[in-house]
Simulated scan of single mutants.
Amino acid sequence: MKELMQTEAVITVAGLVKRYGEFEAVRGVDFEVGRGEVFGFVGPNGAGKTTVIECIVGLRKPTEGTVRVLGIDPSANRPQTTAHVAVQTQSASLFDTLSVIETLRLFASFHQNALDPDDVVHQVGLDEERDHRSKNLSGGQARRLLLGVALVGDPEIVVLDEPSAGLDPAARQNLWGLIASLRIRGVTVLLSTHDMEEATSLCDRVAMLVAGRVAALDSPAELIRKRSATSTVSFTVPFNIDIDTLATLAEPGGLTTSVVGGALRVTIVTSDPDKVLRRVTFEPSVKASEFDIRNGSLQDMFIELAREEFSEPAQKPASLPSRGKRSRS
């Protein structure tokens, strides 16, 4: 766990509104991101994530409201912003004939205070591919090189758009480890993703955008706790079990059964999973096995919010937590 102490806000967004003609893509967004924080954006397509990020990196100017990055107006001061903020898009073109180290040396030459490209090769785990041409890299290796290109300028803030999209599980885990190491170095990471497992595993806080507004903002664990009042308890029992006995043990909660391999798979949705477990395990006639307890997840919340028509008024600015512990779920 990482303890979130009182920390400096390096990104401040207040009352952000962005219109394209009569279409309002962003409808009053407020939040802050602290130095060294991994801050996630999630939301359905069209929720406004890309527009908010483009305003943060200075590619678009807000219609209303303010955006400050390290105290700078990014749309008015693009050179200053790009000197401190690196962006890794989901896909980008590399020079096919350049090797990994040559690519990093090239991009290092664009920065006044660049990191040593040899060190960056090691940071992104491409030591063995150091002299491989970029066109011969696997998808995961190419994604690591793109991240290396973003890091070689020694940015204070890194913006990542769907960093692990399309990667196999091993490559994804490796990339997650690299992103987690940025936090340890004090680099602030702004992460846009549709992968709820990624957001849960990596982010200190997550902002869920729906219809151009922040529908929820907190740590993944707190978002799940606040939104999910029930858990699901599942277990397997012999096919000839007395259903009335099961129904009694399920209280409080609703019970459903299904036939699986000559046995009954029992599922109980309950607000008190511990009580249900005690009742089932302490009843010898039930002979339950293969227990599984499933609490709510960020994905459940994401799906629920995406189905709702978000009509609440814009939230107050989401300030940084003063003290507290970041928990994983």
Rank of each mutant, 00 (worst) to 15 (best):
E283L: 02
P284E: 14
R279K: 15
S271M: 05
S234P: 02
R205W: 02
L190G: 01
T193V: 12
R225H: 10
I224S: 04
G253W: 01
G253S: 10
T245H: 06
P273T: 05
L178Q: 11
V260Q: 10
G212M: 08
D195G: 05
V280N: 01
H194Y: 05
L209H: 00
V269M: 04
P238H: 11
P238C: 11
A211V: 04
D244F: 04
S285P: 00
R225A: 15
W176P: 01
P238W: 12
I268L: 08
T193Q: 09
V187N: 05
A216D: 05
G186V: 11
M208K: 00
E290I: 04
E251R: 12
T270E: 01
R225S: 12
G262D: 08
E222Q: 10
T232L: 15
V276M: 10
S289P: 00
D242A: 13
C203M: 11
L191G: 04
I293V: 15
T236L: 06
T200F: 06
D272K: 07
A211Q: 14
S181F: 06
A216Q: 07
L202R: 02
V260G: 03
P273S: 06
R279F: 10
D292H: 14
L182G: 05
R278G: 15
P284L: 12
L246H: 08
A221T: 06
T267W: 00
G262M: 13
L182V: 10
N240D: 15
P273M: 09
R183L: 08
W176V: 04
V214Y: 00
E222W: 02
V187Q: 09
